[in-house]
Deep mutational scan, measured.
Amino acid sequence: MIINNLKLIREKKKISQSELAALLEVSRQTINGIEKNKYNPSLQLALKIAYYLNTPLEDIFQWQ
């Protein structure tokens, strides 16, 4: 199972779901689904999230 800290990191950086979704060219619902662990992002999307949040990938997504 993958645990993610996306919501915590996104809120710490004061970025809304809508703003992050626009940067990543995905829907706000996609961001919401990832934050709620409804599904895991593709590797490409995970890397883009880490890039736009300027945060190491392993700080956002962790195996458990």
Rank of each mutant, 00 (worst) to 15 (best):
M1N: 05
I2K: 11
I2Q: 09
I2L: 10
I2N: 07
I2M: 08
I3P: 05
I3D: 05
I3F: 13
I3H: 09
I3K: 14
I3L: 13
I3E: 08
I3T: 14
I3Q: 10
N4D: 02
N4W: 02
N4R: 02
N4P: 03
N4V: 03
N4T: 03
N5Y: 05
N5K: 08
N5L: 04
L6W: 00
L6V: 05
L6A: 03
L6K: 00
K7S: 09
K7A: 13
K7H: 06
K7V: 08
K7Y: 07
K7W: 07
L8N: 13
L8D: 15
L8S: 15
I9L: 09
I9K: 04
I9Q: 06
I9T: 07
I9H: 08
I9G: 02
I9D: 02
I9Y: 12
R10W: 02
R10N: 01
R10E: 01
R10G: 01
E11Y: 06
E11M: 09
E11L: 10
E11G: 06
E11I: 12
K12G: 13
K12T: 13
K12Y: 15
K12I: 11
K12R: 15
K12V: 08
K13C: 08
K13W: 06
K14E: 11
K14A: 13
K14V: 05
K14D: 13
K14F: 11
K14I: 05
K14Y: 08
I15K: 06
I15C: 06
S16C: 05
S16G: 07
S16M: 06
S16H: 06
S16N: 09
S16I: 04
S16K: 12
Q17K: 10
Q17R: 08
Q17I: 13
Q17P: 05
Q17E: 06
S18R: 11
S18D: 12
S18W: 15
S18Q: 14
E19N: 10
E19S: 09
E19G: 10
E19F: 07
E19Q: 12
L20W: 01
L20D: 00
L20H: 00
L20C: 03
A21E: 03
A21R: 03
A21M: 03
A21V: 03
A22F: 12
A22V: 12
A22N: 11
A22K: 11
A22I: 12
A22P: 02
L23C: 09
L23R: 10
L23Q: 13
L23M: 15
L23S: 13
L24P: 00
L24M: 09
L24K: 00
L24G: 03
E25I: 07
E25G: 15
E25Q: 13
V26K: 03
V26P: 00
V26W: 02
V26M: 06
V26A: 04
V26T: 07
S27I: 02
S27F: 03
S27G: 09
S27D: 15
S27R: 09
R28H: 15
R28P: 15
R28E: 15
R28T: 15
R28D: 15
R28W: 15
Q29C: 10
Q29G: 15
Q29H: 15
T30P: 01
T30V: 14
T30F: 13
T30A: 09
T30Q: 11
T30K: 09
T30R: 08
T30C: 12
T30W: 08
I31Q: 01
I31V: 13
I31K: 00
N32T: 11
N32S: 10
N32R: 15
N32F: 08
N32D: 15
G33N: 14
G33D: 15
G33T: 08
I34K: 00
I34Y: 04
I34W: 06
I34D: 00
I34M: 05
I34C: 02
I34R: 00
I34P: 00
E35C: 02
E35P: 01
E35Q: 02
E35M: 01
E35R: 01
E35H: 02
E35L: 02
E35Y: 02
E35V: 02
E35S: 01
E35D: 02
K36Y: 10
K36H: 14
K36G: 14
K36E: 15
N37D: 09
N37P: 01
N37R: 07
N37K: 12
N37L: 07
K38V: 14
K38Q: 14
K38A: 14
K38N: 14
K38T: 13
K38Y: 11
Y39R: 11
Y39H: 13
Y39A: 10
Y39E: 12
Y39M: 10
N40S: 14
N40M: 07
N40A: 13
N40K: 12
N40G: 15
N40D: 12
N40P: 10
P41A: 04
P41H: 02
P41I: 08
S42C: 06
S42Y: 04
L43E: 10
L43D: 06
L43Y: 14
L43F: 12
L43T: 10
L43Q: 12
Q44A: 13
Q44K: 11
Q44C: 11
Q44E: 15
Q44F: 10
Q44N: 08
L45W: 03
L45F: 09
L45A: 03
L45N: 03
A46F: 02
A46M: 07
A46P: 00
A46S: 07
L47Q: 14
L47M: 13
L47H: 14
L47T: 15
L47E: 15
K48H: 07
K48R: 12
K48F: 04
K48Y: 04
K48I: 04
I49W: 01
I49T: 04
I49K: 00
I49A: 05
I49E: 00
A50M: 03
A50S: 11
A50G: 05
A50T: 04
A50F: 01
Y51I: 10
Y51P: 01
Y51K: 11
Y51D: 14
Y52R: 06
Y52P: 00
Y52T: 11
Y52Q: 12
Y52C: 09
L53S: 01
L53Y: 01
L53Q: 01
L53E: 00
L53H: 00
L53A: 02
N54I: 05
N54R: 11
T55P: 01
T55M: 08
T55C: 08
T55N: 04
T55Q: 07
T55L: 06
P56K: 08
P56C: 06
P56V: 04
P56I: 04
P56F: 03
P56W: 03
L57T: 04
L57W: 05
E58F: 10
E58I: 09
E58Q: 11
E58P: 11
D59S: 09
I60C: 04
I60E: 01
I60P: 01
F61H: 01
F61D: 00
F61W: 05
F61V: 02
F61P: 01
Q62M: 10
Q62T: 11
Q62K: 13
Q62I: 10
W63N: 04
W63E: 04
Q64Y: 09
Q64I: 07
Q64D: 13
Q64G: 09
